[in-house]
Design a binder for these strands. Structure first.
Ligand SMILES: [Mn+2]
Ligand SMILES: [Mn+2]
Ligand SMILES: [Zn+2]
Ligand SMILES: [Zn+2]
Lengths: 140, 140
DNA sequence: TATCTAGTTTATAATTATTCTAAAGTAAGT
DNA sequence: ACTTACTTTAGAATAATTATAAACTAGATA
């Protein structure tokens, strides 16, 4: 029943590659997340609220969580550890870093940070990724 | 009623500087946290379980949370953002970094990581701290 | 096209980590 | 000993998330 115009192909493909059937709810979520020029950082609550605000028939909480998790597992979203009580997700899945300022997340492109020295992994282990968080506060 | 031997002075002082009266429960927590050679990384649940295991009269959950929070506010503990569902705390309050491997936290001394390039804070903001987390996985 | 079936959505219950509340207990000063 | 402010604690409440299971659909099949 999916009105499958090519325009949505890219968003549908992300769902398919995550093993998800492209239902209306999922396609809308995928478009909301990926149909934008800039990186989008969000919590599931924020995503749900901003999408449902504009809708008469709300998408359920479980569908938001399920879809975000599947997209994350398929590598289309990255999960960030910035605060201890909420998961932040990131549509920028390339290796990069963040400013974090009172709930607001700002990308730092990978080439803006360079290491002069990095430790090696303990024996038997290897490095999966290196994540830098620069916390900000107001001047004076 | 506090049996105040000098041996505990350092642990009691941390409590006092956090605005806490040195009750028996608090002194035991403070000793458990700070009476050790190496950095201790923990979640409140882990702290509670390991301390209460050895005790006939258990210290309550609320006392653990309250004491840890007060010690953190006074600057005697640092809170880490490593996982999204649990707060980790660190008895090493100096600026340093971490390996994180499946719930296990390992200190990286500050001088083991050096930056060749770091972005400056957006206008109106300044950098509060820079935190590097190196996530590990098993070899091959 | 009607039917079938596996996959999906949703409301609601459950769970986990954490915080709140308010009653009972205790430290210290007088 | 008495008072009072501070503590401890069990248990209720909250927030984010996950699980459950009934009603619903997409897509395959006849
Ligand atoms: Mn939490
Ligand atoms: Mn959480
Ligand atoms: Zn990002
Ligand atoms: Zn540490």
């Amino acid at each position: 029943m999916q009105k499958m115009n090519n325009k949505n192909k890219i968003f549908i493909d992300k769902l398919r590659s995550a093993g998800l059937r492209p239902t209306n709810q999922r396609v809308e979520i995928s478009k909301f997340l990926f149909n934008r020029k800039n990186t989008f950082h969000f919590t599931v609550e924020e995503l749900k609220n901003s999408m449902n605000l504009k809708r008469s028939k709300k998408i359920s909480t479980a569908t938001f969580y399920n879809t975000v998790h599947a997209l994350k597992s398929a590598g289309h979203l990255k999960e960030l550890s910035l605060e201890n009580n909420t998961s932040y997700y990131d549509t920028n899945i390339t290796s990069h870093h963040h400013f974090f300022d009172n709930g607001k997340v700002i990308d730092i492109k990978s080439d803006k940070i360079a290491f002069h020295k990095l430790p090696e992994a303990p024996k038997g282990k290897k490095i999966k990724n290196v994540e830098v968080v620069i916390r900000l506060e107001n001047n004076n």
